[in-house]
């Protein structure tokens, strides 16, 4: 395997008492799309800022393209494109003028930069709006302009923080298609963060699931699904009982770790627990005289996996260490 494009070892960032990033070990390989997934406040942005040398790690170290961001930030910034979450532009300038400024800051030769900016605006579908002030741009247009801005310097690595947040579904598809083509056709290594797993899962080669500053799982999506399924599983259960009774009864069963309502179908319960439940659950429910009208294995879906990981990883707000279900 080639050397990693991005690698962190024990990367830690503390804000007062809060460990925003806790001994992070991450490895992003050249040319892949790596998803850093986690709920809000997980520490994704903090990690990204440390990778770019925009924030100092409290401990540990990072390497981007073989360089230490604390020692050679400019060289990294020359070769790494960064799309901040909630990206902003100079409202009074046009889209093209905004990109021009970025090109100048990267010391690109003006003529070549001009051509490249034109191509990029075309690529992100903003050719028509390029000479209008950014003031009038929609959220989605800004996001696409942000992508173009990230690419002005022709980066080897693109770090995209929440590239799909707060844009409409069509916009999301367009942005994801762009990101995918970047990686596949131009060999750009992409690290993207998101709190919306289902949006980005189909384009990520590998993901790290990141909760409360810690990685709870890292690897290809399918592998993660398998690993999780072998330890625990989730069953969809429909019971002939009042909701309160059903919930209490399910939670009291041996081997069950968690019970929650299925958001997609209010009548169903999602029961998580040891893998033996797959065969044992029906029997245990019958023993207690509970009428079962629906029983199905869930959890193959990534959303489900994601939810499971969040459940397992979440420590914050429940006191340290007691949130572990498994």
């Amino acid at each position: 395997m080639a050397d990693a494009a991005i690698r962190t070892r024990g990367l830690t960032r503390r804000y007062g008492d809060l460990l925003a990033v806790d001994r992070l070990d991450l490895e992003v390989r050249p040319g892949e799309i790596f998803g850093l997934l986690g709920p809000n406040g997980a520490g994704k942005t903090t990690t990204i800022l440390m990778l770019l040398g925009l924030s100092e790690p409290t401990a540990g170290r990072a390497e981007v393209l073989g360089m230490d961001p604390t020692r050679r930030p400019l060289e990294i910034k020359r070769r790494v494109g960064y799309l901040p979450d909630d990206v902003g532009f100079y409202d009074g300038l046009t889209g093209r003028q905004n990109l021009r400024y970025t090109a100048r800051l990267n010391r690109l030769e003006p003529k070549a930069a001009e051509r490249r900016i034109g191509e990029l605006l075309e690529l992100v579908g903003l050719a028509g709006a390029a000479d209008r002030p950014v003031e009038g741009y929609s959220r989605g247009m800004r996001q696409r302009l942000g992508l173009a801005d990230t690419l002005v310097k022709d980066p080897e690595v693109a770090i995209l923080d929440e590239p799909t947040a707060s844009i409409d579904p069509t916009g999301v598809r367009e942005v994801l298609a762009l990101v995918r083509s970047l990686a596949r056709e131009r060999g750009v290594t992409v690290l993207l963060s998101s709190h919306l797993l289902h949006q980005v899962q189909q384009i990520c080669d590998r993901v790290a699931i990141f909760v409360d500053g810690r990685i709870v799982a890292q690897g290809p999506m399918a592998e993660l699904a398998e690993r999780l399924a072998s330890e625990t599983l989730t069953m969809e259960v429909g019971l002939e009982a009042e909701p309160e009774v059903a919930e209490a009864a399910l939670a009291a069963l041996p081997g069950v770790h968690g019970v929650r309502r299925d958001e997609r179908d209010e009548r169903l319960w999602l029961v998580t627990g040891d893998s033996e439940l797959r065969t044992a659950l029906a029997g245990r429910l019958a023993e207690r005289g509970l009428g079962v009208w629906h029983l199905r294995r869930a959890g193959d879906e990534l959303d489900e996996i994601y939810a499971r990981y969040f459940e397992r990883g979440s420590r914050r707000g429940r006191g340290a260490g007691d949130g572990r279900a498994a």
Partner: peptide, 18 residues
Amino acid sequence: MAEPPDAPRRRLPSKGRG
């Protein structure tokens, strides 16, 4: 959105950077 036309593949950052 139009996929970009084929671009000459670039060297990956890892190459020659052991």
